[in-house]
Design a protein around this nucleic acid. Structure first.
Lengths: 107, 107
DNA sequence: TCCATTATTAACGCAAATGTTAATTAACGT
DNA sequence: ACGTTAATTAACATTTGCGTTAATAATGGA
């Protein structure tokens, strides 16, 4: 499994995040269609897709001369699992008692 | 609210991710204590803390000459909310029907 | 076969990120 | 006031990231 920081790095760029959002809301798309997400050249998009692919965030399937991309569910699952593993921290009401328990010193 | 790509960028570095993990599991810590997460200089840690702070991932409170850092729950909540907003995609059983619905063309 | 289409890889320039050491700021204790 | 501790800011070198245009690769149709 891809380390979380690498997954985050892939999603840290506006263009790449927009690509992923588009794939999530509209489903699988070709590289050409994904070029619409930002006013940059096709080679630039291609490199962003490579970064996302190498981080395991998206999958690619070849169909003729086209490359069809889709989000790898595992990537989102991994991020979700991380937030959930710390859910007690951020989901609580964060009253004074919890903050005290959270701090280094015991009460 | 901080844009998600900026939050991800803050968490995209191994050292910064380690800092956040430590704060999440052990609670608030001083800059000095957080230096232990990686074999780099104190100024380097200080800059990482600044990146995390400016991205809204951590909070700082001053106590004498010490700076005490803690994770800002809102940051984790925002990441969690994003994954949840796309939960139908990654949580499903991903059988052929769902993949078909997910793809561009209608069935 | 030849050409158009789709996409990537190559080569390059520039800006941003990350590390170092040295210098500075601020609070505390004697 | 002075020295110690805690942390940051300054200045600098090096690496990484992201964009461009030009060149290459691969498929499909006339």
């Amino acid at each position: 499994m891809t380390p979380l920081p690498e997954t985050f790095a892939a999603l840290a760029d506006d263009t790449r995040f927009a690509i992923v959002e588009r794939l999530l809301t509209e489903g699988a798309r070709t590289a050409g269609e994904l070029s619409e997400v930002a006013p940059i050249s096709a080679p630039a998009i291609s490199r962003h897709l490579k970064v996302l692919r190498e981080a395991g965030v998206i999958d690619q399937r070849v169909q003729g001369t086209k490359r069809i991309y889709s989000v790898n569910p595992e990537a989102l699952r991994a991020i979700s699992a991380w937030t959930i593993s710390h859910r007690a921290f951020w989901e609580g009401s964060l009253n004074r008692l919890e903050q005290a328990l959270q701090s280094k010193e015991e009460i």
